[in-house]
C-alpha cells in the first residue's frame, strides 16, 4: 500500500465511524440516551468550553499534568541513568524497580490522599509517581543503547567528558528519549485523570466522573472528544520531533 492509500483508508474509516455515530442514533437503531448523535455531542462540547467551571477545570488539569511531568521526567531520567551507569546501584535497585513497575499504581491512591489530601498536590504527586517508573526504565535503556566503541572513538580524538556527553550520549539516546517522552506523557496524563476521577473537586477527570455517575452521555462523550484531541496533538508533536532526528534510524 502506498502512503496515500493508507491515509485515504484511514480517513474513510474515520468518516465511516463518525457517520455511523451520527446516523445510527438518529435512525433509532441505537438508543440516543446511550449514544447521542455526534452533532449533539459536538454542540455540547462547544457549550461546555464556554462555561467558566469547565475552563477552570481544564486549566487545573493542564497545570497538574505539566508540573507532574516536570518533576517525573528529570527525576526518573537521573535515577535511570544512575541505574545504567553505576553497576552497584543498578544491581541493587533494578529488580526492585521492575517489580514496582508491574504493580497497578492506583492501588496506592488512598495513601496519596492520606498524605496529600485531594487537592493539586495530590494529583501531581500521584501522576509523578505513576510516571516515574517508565521514565526510569526508558532512561536506563537509552543509556545502554550508547555504544562503547562510539565513546572510545570520541575520546581518541580528544573529546572532553562534556563533549562525549553532548556529541555521543545525547545523539545516541535521542530516539529512545523521544519515544520515552511520549510514553511517559501517556502515563502522566492517565495518572492525573485517575486521581481526579477517584477523588477531587475540580479538573477534567472530576467533571467526566460526575457526568458519568449521572449518566449525562452528551457531556461525557464531549469530554472524551476533548481528551482525544489533546492526546492527538501531543502525539503528533512528538512524532514530528522524532521524524526530524530519525534520519539515521534504520
Amino acid at each position: 500500500m502506498t502512503r496515500l492509500q493508507i491515509i485515504f483508508t484511514r480517513l474513510a474509516l474515520f468518516a465511516l465511524v463518525m457517520g455511523a455515530w451520527e446516523a445510527l442514533p438518529r435512525a433509532g437503531a441505537v438508543n440516543p440516551l446511550l449514544l447521542p448523535p455526534l452533532s449533539g455531542v459536538v454542540r455540547m462540547l462547544g457549550q461546555l468550553l464556554g462555561r467558566a467551571q469547565v475552563q477552570e477545570a481544564i486549566g487545573v488539569t493542564a497545570a497538574e499534568v505539566i508540573v507532574a511531568f516536570i518533576i517525573a521526567v528529570p527525576l526518573g531520567a537521573a535515577i535511570g541513568i544512575l541505574a545504567a551507569e553505576n553497576d552497584y546501584f543498578g544491581a541493587i535497585f533494578r529488580p526492585m524497580l521492575f517489580y514496582v513497575f508491574s504493580i497497578p499504581k492506583s492501588i496506592f491512591l488512598p495513601m496519596f490522599i492520606l498524605v496529600f489530601g485531594i487537592g493539586f498536590g495530590q494529583k501531581v504527586a500521584y501522576a509523578a509517581f505513576s510516571t516515574l517508573f517508565i521514565v526510569i526504565m526508558s532512561a536506563a535503556a537509552a543509556v545502554e543503547s550508547v555504544k562503547a566503541d562510539h565513546v572510545l572513538v570520541a575520546r581518541s580524538y580528544g573529546a572532553s567528558p562534556l563533549q562525549v556527553l553532548t556529541r555521543v550520549y545525547v545523539p545516541s539516546m535521542m530516539p529512545f528519549l523521544l519515544e520515552a517522552l511520549r510514553i511517559s506523557m501517556i502515563f502522566n496524563f492517565t495518572g492525573v485523570m485517575i486521581a481526579e476521577m477517584y477523588a477531587s473537586r475540580t479538573g477534567i477527570g472530576h467533571l467526566i466522573a460526575s457526568w458519568g455517575e449521572n449518566f449525562q452521555m452528551p457531556q461525557l462523550l464531549a469530554g472524551v472528544i476533548l481528551l482525544a484531541a489533546v492526546a492527538i496533538l501531543f502525539n503528533e508533536t512528538v512524532r514530528w520531533l522524532e521524524g526530524r532526528c530519525s534520519t539515521w534510524r534504520t
Binding site: 566503541d149 556529541r167 535521542m174
Partner: peptide, 23 residues
C-alpha cells in the same frame, strides 16, 4: 577501529569532520 565505529547520526562528511569539530 574495528567494524562499525562511525556515528550513525552523522553523514560521511560530518563523521570525517568529527575530530576537527572536537577541537
Amino acid at each position: 577501529f574495528q567494524e562499525a565505529s562511525l556515528f550513525p547520526w552523522l553523514t560521511a562528511l560530518d563523521n570525517i569532520e568529527f575530530p576537527l569539530s572536537i577541537r
